[in-house]
């Protein structure tokens, strides 16, 4: 497989064409809501992402992620894959996935040795090929930056 094909894996192209979570959704009464607008100033890609956090005695869970944006296939697919991955996860899980995904993006195309971590990422491991192109790593991280900021703005991370 060429570097280009490693980068544009079928799962990435599928998500880019049929993104998950596209279209901002209302957050139900009683849930925490946070919204973030992120741009990649070098290319003008942007995403507005809204997170819906449900809080109960067991803890805080990402109930839903919805977003709007425009950008390259990598930024759109990455935001879509992330939406699938984090929905229904508790916030500690989301933080762990965020760390693993950032580690993957810093791997310069080598990927991660940690099988457990890779399992946790699921489809997001398809972005390994992106990490060998420094100029594109920001594209893959745009949605993740918006999620992190949305969670901070929702107040769910407080305490």
């Amino acid at each position: 497989m060429s570097s280009l094909e490693q980068m544009y894996q079928a799962v990435i192209l599928d998500h880019a064409k049929h993104p998950v979570g596209r279209g901002l959704a209302e957050v139900p009464e009683g849930h925490l809501a946070g919204e973030s607008h992120q741009v990649n100033p070098t290319c003008g890609d942007e995403v507005t992402l809204r997170v819906d956090v449900s809080v109960d005695a067991a803890g805080s869970t990402v109930a839903a992620v919805s977003w709007e944006g425009q950008g390259c296939s990598i930024s759109q697919a990455s935001t879509s894959v992330m939406t699938e991955l984090v929905t229904g996860r508790d916030l500690a899980d989301v933080a762990r996935l965020d760390t693993i995904f950032h580690d993957l993006m810093s791997s310069r195309g080598k990927g991660l040795d940690d099988d457990e971590a890779l399992d946790a990422l699921g489809d997001a491991t398809a972005f390994t090929g992106v990490s060998q192109y420094p100029a594109r790593i920001k594209c893959a991280l745009l949605g993740w930056a918006a999620l992190k900021d949305s969670l901070a703005r929702s107040g769910a991370l407080a305490g």
């Binding site: 280009l4 544009y8 390259c72 990598i74 594109r136």
Partner: peptide, 9 residues
């Protein structure tokens, strides 16, 4: 096709 993706190919 986004310009970034065009450039990459």
């Amino acid at each position: 096709v986004h310009a970034h993706d065009v450039g990459q190919v």
